[in-house]
C-alpha cells in the first residue's frame, strides 16, 4: 500500500496531537459501570466505532478527498449536538493542526489554520493532514476509525487497570469492523457533504455533558 508508513505515523497513539488526555467517553462509561472489563469495553468500542467513529471517519475521508473543510466543519457541528463534544473536537483539531503543520507542512493546512485559528473539528483536520501527507480518503478514514477505538481502549487500561493484553486483543478483534467502517466512510467521503453519515450515540452525547461538569477526573473528555 502506498503511504503505509505515513498512515502508521498519523494513526500512532504517540502522534503528538493531544489525544492521550481524552478518553472518548470511556471515563464516563467506566464511572457509570457500563464498562468494567474487556467484554464491556469491546461493546463500548464497537458502538463507538459504528456511530461517532463512522461519522468522524467519513468527515476525515471527505476532507482528504478535497471537500471544503469549512463546509465539513459545519457538517460536523450539525452532527455534534453536545457543546462539550464540539469544544473537545475543536480543541483537538487545533492541537492536531499544530502537529500536522510541523510534520507535513502544506498550503491547505496553513489556509485552514488562518481561517479558523480557534480550530475546526478534529476529523476534518485529520483528513486534511492525511491529504498533506499524500494519503487518500480511505487512509484518512482508517486513521479516524482506528483513533475512535484505540483511544477508549488505552483510556480503559488506565481507568480500570485492565490487563493491557486484553485491551489490545479487543482492538484486534475489532479490526475487521474497523476496516469495514473505514471502507464505508472512505466511499461516503467522496460523495456529497449532505449525504455523509450522521451516525450518533445518545449515551456519548449525554455522558459527555455529565463528564464536563465533574470536578475530579483523569481525562479531559
Amino acid at each position: 500500500m502506498a503511504g503505509a508508513a505515513a498512515l502508521l505515523l498519523l494513526a500512532d497513539g504517540r502522534f503528538p496531537a493531544g489525544g492521550h488526555a481524552h478518553s472518548q467517553g470511556a471515563e464516563a462509561a467506566v464511572k457509570a459501570g457500563r464498562v468494567h472489563d474487556a467484554a464491556t469495553l469491546e461493546e463500548f468500542c464497537r458502538g463507538r466505532l459504528h456511530t461517532a467513529g463512522l461519522t468522524a471517519a467519513a468527515l476525515a475521508a471527505a476532507a482528504a478527498a478535497g471537500h471544503d473543510p469549512l463546509a465539513l466543519d459545519e457538517a460536523a457541528d450539525a452532527r455534534t449536538p453536545s457543546p462539550a463534544l464540539r469544544r473537545t473536537a475543536r480543541k483537538l483539531g487545533r492541537q492536531l493542526m499544530r502537529a500536522a503543520r510541523a510534520t507535513w507542512p502544506g498550503p491547505e493546512l496553513d489556509e485552514l489554520a488562518a481561517a479558523r485559528p480557534q480550530g475546526v473539528h478534529q476529523p476534518v483536520v485529520l483528513g486534511l493532514a492525511a491529504r498533506s501527507a499524500g494519503l487518500g480518503p480511505l487512509e484518512a478514514a482508517q486513521a479516524a476509525a482506528y483513533d475512535n477505538v484505540s483511544g477508549p481502549a488505552t483510556a480503559a487500561v488506565r481507568l480500570l487497570s485492565l490487563d493491557p493484553f486484553h485491551a489490545t486483543a479487543v482492538l484486534a478483534r475489532l479490526t475487521p469492523e474497523t476496516d469495514e467502517v473505514a471502507r464505508r466512510a472512505g466511499t461516503a467521503g467522496s460523495g456529497a457533504v449532505e449525504d455523509l453519515p450522521a451516525a450518533s450515540a445518545p449515551l456519548l452525547e449525554i455522558t459527555a455533558e455529565q463528564h464536563a461538569t465533574w470536578p475530579v477526573r483523569l481525562f479531559a473528555s
Partner: peptide, 29 residues
Amino acid sequence: VRRGGRPLLDQQLDFGPGAPGWDGGAVLG
C-alpha cells in the same frame, strides 16, 4: 434539519438486531 439551507442538526440512530454495538455502553447501555 436544515435552516436557511444550512445544516443545523443531523443525527442517525440505529438500534436492534444487526446494528453493531447498539446496546453497549456507548449507545444505549
